[in-house]
Design a protein around this nucleic acid. Structure first.
Lengths: 246, 246
DNA sequence: CGGCTCATGTAAAGCTCGTTCACATGAGCT
DNA sequence: AGCTCATGTGAACGAGCTTTACATGAGCCG
């Protein structure tokens, strides 16, 4: 069985040339397959065709590899959230919902990153760079919440943007971890995780007094038509975000 | 170092007498300390004062021990949620919020159980007993949501109880995993996880049209934390669930 | 070109863990 | 008293993590 390794060596020489990147890619694949817990340093080395000790030239230990992946994940996460937010276009509520969907999409499409970021149990605050990356990502949600809070219907107390951001984050994370990943996704649900989160966010926003059943006329003024129902007895618009009751 | 084991043996004889339970307790302690990932079968055996092979007389493998703990956790979880719900007394909304707090309290006070149940990555659907226990716990939330849904203000579409239950679950789980456990709890927040979740749930319920600023006249106590200044024009209570804006 | 140096890779070894196996012990029944 | 079987032991295997001493060769300097 040794000819395999010999051949690899023959193909690429004694030095790999790009081992660090190769290890990251290998780890990413392994984590996607078996989870951060199941991934092994040795496997990554094997996959890259080097000895088990080689990775230590590039990462202090297994945790540092995991950390690197998590950090990279937070960066991509931030990028995707930023793109989804698109600076609040075409209107704040629409963009806000798009951020929520982007959160779920990331969790679904990048299970390895998501796992390393949120489910690997590595101490986020141990690595300053990691913590910073994590905060940058959260700040997108926070900035969006800030804009949303500024739209609070007149006459109502303005909700703290930070609180809103934390709420939205917890909803997205809760839905993602419980229903949108791995075998958790196998739970039988009356609706898709995306729909579930969208409804949740909409109901929440309505609870804050935002008009959510209809979008403002796109381009112009944000401070939108407060739905007439808002002044009625219960303040609840007809037809819930979950669609029409059957 | 061997005198240690010898002495243990001398104290308790060849047979432990209650090894299964001792292992469960040991594992619980270890998981609380180092997480489900960090816990080792060997450590549990050591802690119980037996050889590394002894546990295999009581558990097929490490996963089965973890599974047992998770199951026990779900049972305690169910018990606590049931107690908190108290069949909806003194009123549905109050009881509902109490369930939310019980969720967080459990996550905080029983980190080992919570870890095994939700963060250990073990396949819930692999073990039927485990799955059943998990479902029983969820059914408490679901039953509570059912009752709450029945209270939907007249004239509004009744929200699907299942959806409400999933929403509440995701909020509680999201807050618990992000802010209420381990080093995640070290994130600096403008409010406690309990307050965060309570506000989140209240806003959500308000989004569904439930009156949340004041409880229905409970027969007994039910001290109103907020002065009853509720009578602005917009149908939105002044002073959000997050308290007074400063 | 020749030689030096240092980043990068290797092999071997020590440790822990999970797991299995053959064997030991003794509690409880007959 | 003797049997039996559940329960515990020790040794052993393979695998992973990590360190250490050594090997290789790419890039640089004269």
């Amino acid at each position: 069985m040794s000819w395999r390794k010999e051949q690899r060596r023959a193909e690429r020489g004694y030095h790999h040339g790009n081992l660090k990147e190769a290890l990251l890619q290998a780890a990413l694949g392994l984590i996607a397959e078996k989870g951060a817990a199941g991934f092994t340093f040795a496997d990554a080395a094997r996959m890259a065709g080097v000895s088990a000790a080689a990775p230590y030239r590039h990462f202090r230990d297994r945790d540092e590899l995991l950390s690197s992946i998590a950090q990279r994940g937070f960066e991509q996460f931030e990028a995707r959230l930023t793109a989804a937010w698109d600076d609040g276009r075409p209107d704040t509520v629409t963009a806000f919902e798009r951020v929520g969907r982007a959160y779920l999409a990331f969790a679904r499409e990048e299970p390895a990153f998501y796992n390393a970021m949120f489910e690997s149990g590595l101490p986020v605050d141990a690595n300053p760079a990691l913590q910073a990356a994590s905060e940058r990502a959260f700040n997108i949600i926070r900035a969006a919440a800030e804009r949303l809070a500024a739209l609070a219907p007149p006459g109502t107390p303005r909700p703290p943007a930070m609180m809103m951001a934390l709420h939205i984050w917890s909803m997205a994370h809760g839905v993602a971890s419980l229903f949108s990943r791995g075998d958790a996704a196998r739970r039988k649900l009356p609706m898709s995780p995306d729909e579930l989160l969208e409804a949740e966010v909409l109901i929440y926003l309505r609870g804050l007094g935002f008009p959510t059943d209809r979008r403002p006329p796109a381009k112009s003024a944000e401070p939108p038509p407060v739905p007439p129902e808002a002044s009625s007895g219960s303040g609840v618009p007809p037809g819930g975000p979950w669609g029409k009751p059957k």
